[in-house]
């Protein structure tokens, strides 16, 4: 986090010193990748089962996506926001440490497990960055920022679609149904539909900037419901996704 924070700060410096922000952010990514790799090795299973483990992936992917946006669109402020976003989830993990064990329920022992969860965590990170660019677009009133949001949303939606489809095929293999309106599936469908509305509004009502930005924020709230929020609802008692409940 320290490397990422210094990297984000250097992004505000003159152009000649900006390459150090990339180097330091890459260093932060390398540290997080090493930590995830070591955790994977020590647990002898993919560290994607508990909420804390998924938060770790979210932190990693947020910094990666932030760096890609910084390099591609040259938004100097994005690294500061993604560093804060990533730090929040790391701090939550430090404040609420989990007892990691090697156990993984049989239903999770599938070839679909890693791609399904990893693709979702990457999508969450991209959509988190999309919220940052959408809010910045609202404040600064810049259409260029909304174009960046468009690109992030398209990539994020593609990943969410992969996540839903891989989940459906896995569910068929494990339980016999592609789709069963399980609460987590339902919230995934809600989130996907919100982003579909965003795409359609940007296609058919290009001048509805505020509505589009608002949809990005609502969509991100939907993602939070899909990730962990649904487990606070009474409907979660009917969910087969009980292994991902708040820990």
């Amino acid at each position: 986090m320290l490397l990422s924070a210094v990297g984000a700060a250097l992004a505000w410096r003159p152009r000649s010193k900006r390459c150090w922000s990339t180097v330091l952010t890459l260093g932060a990514i390398a540290v997080l990748v090493s930590f995830v790799g070591a955790l994977w090795f020590s647990l002898q299973r993919p560290p994607l089962r508990t909420m804390g483990e998924t938060r770790l992936w979210y932190s990693l992917f947020s910094i990666i996506v932030g760096l890609i946006i910084y390099r591609h669109w040259h938004f100097r402020w994005i690294l500061s926001f993604t560093t804060v976003l990533s730090a929040v989830f790391c701090i939550i993990n430090i404040i609420h440490p989990e007892l990691h064990d090697r156990s993984m329920m049989p239903a999770l022992q599938s070839a679909w497990f890693v791609p399904h969860v990893a693709v979702y965590m990457l999508a969450y990170a991209i959509m988190g960055c999309a919220v940052i660019t959408a809010v910045a677009s609202l404040i600064k009133q810049q259409t260029a920022l909304l174009h960046t949001t468009d690109n992030l949303i398209y990539i994020g939606v593609a990943l969410i679609t992969f996540g839903i489809l891989s989940g459906a095929v896995w569910a068929k293999q494990a339980w016999g149904d592609y789709w069963s309106w399980d609460p987590k599936e339902t919230w995934a469908a809600i989130t996907w539909a919100i982003y579909m509305i965003y795409i359609h509004i940007r296609q058919t009502h290009a001048s509805w900037h505020k509505t589009a930005c608002l949809l990005v924020i609502i969509g991100f709230l939907g993602l939070q419901m899909c990730w962990y929020g649904f487990s606070y609802l009474s409907t979660s008692q009917q969910s087969v996704h009980s292994y991902s409940q708040i820990q």
């Binding site: 810049q142 260029a144 939606v157 593609a158 679609t161 489809l165």
Partner: peptide, 30 residues
């Protein structure tokens, strides 16, 4: 599902892929 997966792949590769008339896309202010 296969159709949607291929469609999502093209969505991923090509992105939003458009510049609207009347909207300036190069007005990036750092």
């Amino acid at each position: 599902i296969v159709g949607m997966a291929l469609g999502a792949l093209l969505l991923f590769i090509h992105g939003s892929n458009k510049h609207r008339a009347g909207e300036e896309v190069n007005d990036v202010v750092e």
